[in-house]
Design a protein around this nucleic acid. Structure first.
Lengths: 196, 196
DNA sequence: AAAATAAACGAACGGTCGTTCTTTGTCAAT
DNA sequence: ATTGACAAAGAACGACCGTTCGTTTATTTT
């Protein structure tokens, strides 16, 4: 790993932490430079444009999401077990205790939902992939007979997504940690209602 | 209504439309002045500080929410009918077709969930009130025997909130109008599962 | 060790930001 | 007609923004 790559990684790490708190748009190169004890131009040179920086941060966030949520669940057996793993990992990721700031992806979704451009495109792509992965995890439960054969996988994925959003909302805005437990209860109710 | 009051109302109306698209933080006084064919200082004078403007916009948004969602539902009979009215009005409000921009309150929740201050406080207050109103609407269903006596009202309000968030997410980010129908289906499933 | 490449710096640019202050209109009551 | 309060304009402020450019320092390759 060359020095340039190492610096770029350090910048991205800092930028990710920062934008989780203040958003991708409010993230500024000057601020980043100060935190890293670098010059503005030094930071800037690694990306060439602010939009490229935002995209790089977003892709890093999505990569980490995959790493921390999707990949561990692939180790769990298909079906309900995997679906539950996916969800609990998701809860842990989106409200990682200790460090400040919530889930960058949810934040970015609200920030860029009306702002056309490459950043939005990147986000939409990632979110669609994630939703499909979730939908597939539900479909596996149906295939294995753990959920009713007539269950609507996309509808279920939609509702599970809503539970996660609600948990994020409660934890972040109200500071109610109970939101996570609520979401888990919601998931169980959902699965029970669709049990085979 | 004095001239000053009229101008202030016009500013707020424009500011509300603008911040629904770009957010409360990105909303700038210069931009507002240009759209209204006014001077920056002329706009500024009505609020004295940007934070005051943000709070005024937020309170206006909350007032309109109450007007367009809560109040019409109070005209519906208590119980399931009122709860359904509340939800459908909510769907219509949060993704009002025609005009650009989504629900300012959801946007602001993501934007200010890690930004302490008067704006956040105002938002949290409003969101708590709304959640409680929702919870009370559920409780009325239980009281009237339309939902099971052991139903957890706050849990149900939490899950209903999640459905609305998911609908907003899908409509705004994916442009899938079907999100609203999905949310309605989710609500019906929820109510059916808790039927007395 | 020398040459070539990469990385970071520092200064400057045009712009926009929120904010302040002074001045100019514009009505209403006297 | 005069005064006085209010509304808006206009110019200026320091601060920060993203970006460009030329220079200097590190690192790598020959």
């Amino acid at each position: 790993m060359s020095k340039g790559e190492a610096t770029r990684a350090a910048i991205l790490d800092c930028a990710l932490a920062l934008s989780k708190q203040i958003g991708l748009e409010a993230l500024s190169i000057g601020m980043l430079a100060e935190r890293l004890s670098m010059s503005k131009s030094g930071v800037f040179a690694h990306f060439g444009a602010k939009e490229e920086l935002q995209i790089a941060v977003l892709e890093e966030a999505q990569a980490r999401f995959t790493e921390q949520v999707v990949r561990p669940a692939l180790g769990a057996p298909r079906g309900l077990t995997r679906l539950r793993t996916l969800f609990t990992r998701w809860m842990e990721y989106s409200a990682a205790s200790g460090e400040p700031g919530g889930c960058l992806l949810i934040q970015a979704a609200a920030e860029f939902d009306d702002k056309p451009g490459a950043v939005r495109d990147c986000l939409v792509r990632g979110q669609r992939q994630w939703r499909e992965a979730l939908s597939r995890a539900v479909a596996m439960c149906v295939e294995r007979g753990e959920l009713a054969a007539d269950a609507d996988c996309e509808q279920l994925a939609f509702e599970i997504f809503g539970l996660a959003l609600a948990a994020h909302h409660d934890v972040r805005l109200f500071g109610e940690q109970a939101g996570r437990a609520r979401a888990l209860r919601g998931l169980e109710r959902l699965l029970a209602a669709c049990a085979a």
